[in-house]
Design a protein around this nucleic acid. Structure first.
Lengths: 213, 213
DNA sequence: CGAGAGATACGTACCGTTCAGTAACATTTT
DNA sequence: AAAATGTTACTGAACGGTACGTATCTCTCG
């Protein structure tokens, strides 16, 4: 269709691809900036400046800044499931190994320099308002993740899969947050190992009614 | 002194104490609003309006909005340790029970309506800049919490106390975040139970070298 | 073939509002 | 008296968002 070669007329700010349409460059820049600095911290002027476009171009493709933020999070959501499903596909029929594989990668990334946690979780922290478009994407993602984890816990044969699934979810969210709180050397590096221990303890449990009456 | 009953000249917004000094009322209002809505989401005008004071009063007691935010977080930090130490004091010499007690309370609060997670964690999400005054308070708190948890894990006799301590920290942070992500019915309700299982699995572990070579 | 009409894609310049923060002065409280 | 607070008015910058003009490309139709 259209050419893939570069160097358009506005080549000052962005160092990456330049032949993309304005909307694509805006979304790419927004993804980078929103994730690194936070959504509230970044103004639309900064986005269009770094994208090398102008503000009307942004508002032609996105109804509002909130809409742009939601678009960023939708991409983030897709990439999340890509990583998750890759770990699942790597160990067919073995949910324990699937989780260990997924969390090993999470633990690695979470202690890397400049790691900023889960973009969807961060957005929910920034926008506590229940029906905010940016928040909705993350909430849906977390609900589905919870469902999947509980399902996997059941497939492992856990006597109380909901508790184990929720425990794994807590560890995952803790790794995201701790990654950006502590940086390299933080506790997130142990998430896979701790999750495996939690699984171990939950599977080798005979009576499921262990809570306080 | 002056009356404790309400309806001062500016009685529209705040429903609480009215006899406090301006600085105290500002800090009280800031604590409430910053926690509920987020620091970036709340402007100083909104704070002084709801506190029933004027803007110069704010800047007579606080050098800047960031300084006010840091003050809010310092109070939050103190209250955190009050709760933590209360759980510790309730079970002298039994760190496992201490943690269970603390996390039982965390789990209860985290699934209450309107729960908004840990104010310090949230501030760190809002301000990724390394040396931001609001971020510094939370980072120091988390470092100390990590140290305490590892210490308690060692006191339990865990063969690898750093890993267990970090695992507990992940569960705690996960409970904070999940509490505000899911609201009532969320996975944070299981944090104490899952932590206890993790402790169980970590204590009944003979060889500490269980990772991949 | 070639002119012109849309349609598409983008920029220039600007809007009103809100932001954090301040100066100068009056008033109340202790 | 003096310490604390209120009143009013203001600043300059940043905010999200928009009215309007201008290229360029493509699809017709004479």
């Amino acid at each position: 269709m259209n050419d893939e070669k570069t160097v358009g007329p506005t080549s000052e700010a962005d160092g990456s691809r330049q032949s993309l349409r304005a909307a694509d460059r805006i979304l790419d820049t927004a993804r980078k900036l929103f994730y690194r600095e936070g959504i509230r911290a970044i103004g639309v002027d900064e986005i269009v400046r770094q994208a090398g476009v102008t503000k009307p171009s942004l508002y032609r493709s996105f109804a509002s800044k909130d809409d742009l933020a939601a678009s960023y999070l939708k991409v983030y959501d897709q990439e999340f499931w890509k990583r998750f499903d890759a770990a699942v596909a790597a160990h067919p029929g073995d949910p324990r190994k699937q989780i260990f594989a997924f969390l090993s990668r999470v633990g690695e990334r979470a202690v890397m320099e400049g790691y900023r946690g889960c973009g969807m979780t961060n957005a929910a922290v920034e926008y506590p308002e229940p029906n905010h478009p940016a928040r909705a994407v993350g909430e849906a993602n977390k609900r589905e993740l919870r469902r999947r984890l509980r399902e996997m816990a059941a497939d492992m044969g856990a006597p109380d899969p909901d508790i184990l699934g929720d425990g794994l979810l807590l560890l995952i969210e803790g790794a995201y947050i701790s990654g950006q709180l502590f940086g390299p050397g933080g506790p997130a590096a142990t998430v896979a190992q701790n999750a495996d221990r939690l699984i171990e303890a939950s599977l080798s449990r005979e009576n499921t009614s262990h809570r306080q009456p």
